[in-house]
Design a protein around this nucleic acid. Structure first.
Lengths: 154, 154
DNA sequence: TATTGTTATACTCTATAACTATA
DNA sequence: TATAGTTATAGAGTATAACAATA
């Protein structure tokens, strides 16, 4: 085993913001995946549960808009959460279907909230509360600059 | 068209660091993809070109270690860059194969560097040089905290 | 006709196992 | 045996088009 992974290797990405954003995002998502594994769901499903827990009775298209996801890609996630007994569907206005948590889903939601909180504490442990607030504001700004700089829609 | 996308919708992720890291990373990668489209390569291929440009004669496993990627996933990227005449393979030590840029590849490398620089300027335009340096340091720290906090290898 | 939800599909990224080749 | 590279494959994530159902 060589304990010198890249001794004389030049890294042109060392100070690139985009590179570190991506690396860090991937590592943070992997850590969240690990943290959620014990309750049998992945970050996407947990995010859905969290969103529905905070917005009981919302519809699939509400969620798609909030998460900027394609409605088609929510189908399998929702199906799984219904299958494990966490989610309940009920008819809404028009063709809409409302989603709400079952008692099982509420238990899972509480666990998800706890796991998210612990995860956030872990990834933010190097930051003071002020630093953390500023970092989130910066990320929002960078996201906006990337999205809408020249041509993309808002 | 409803110009009120999420009026009374509660967003439980508004202040979550992990959520904004991911959203921002995705937006920044999409912007880089758009910026690279005119020269016919994607961010992965551009990253490869950049790395080989800075480390002429390196091997595929050097690259895999540097980018923390699976060697198997580099094969198609390298094949494409060889196919478009940007990359040249030559026998190295043992079974190793060294990679270097052709003249065409050097041209592309220069274009990639320009596009990366413009991209970095765009996503960092809200930051002072000091802020930018600090942000990169914070991201490194968060990445380390996410990766190695409890159980993951270094 | 517009909105909502679903299906099918396709493309990329990523991860692993199995194989070959070289020292 | 250890290292390097390749192939095949499987899974997740994401995007679009086409379709059905409801107002």
């Amino acid at each position: 085993m060589t304990m010198t992974p890249a001794a004389d290797f030049d890294d042109p990405f060392g100070s690139m913001l985009g590179y570190h954003l991506r690396r860090t995002s991937v590592a943070v998502m992997a850590a969240l995946g690990d943290a959620l594994a014990p309750i049998g769901i992945n970050p996407s499903e947990a995010t859905l549960l969290r969103l529905i827990g905070a917005n009981d009775g919302c519809t699939q298209s509400d969620i798609a808009r909030a998460l900027r996801a394609q409605p088609a890609n929510l189908v399998s996630l929702i199906q799984k959460l219904v299958l494990v007994g966490a989610l309940r569907k009920a008819p809404g206005k028009g063709r809409a279907i409302t989603l709400s948590l079952t008692p099982t889903g509420q238990d899972m939601h509480e666990q998800v909230c706890r796991i998210f909180d612990r995860h956030e504490a872990r990834i933010g442990r190097a930051l003071s509360p002020d630093q953390r607030t500023e970092l989130v504001a910066l990320l929002r700004q960078i996201c906006a600059d990337a999205c809408c700089g020249d041509d993309r829609p808002g």
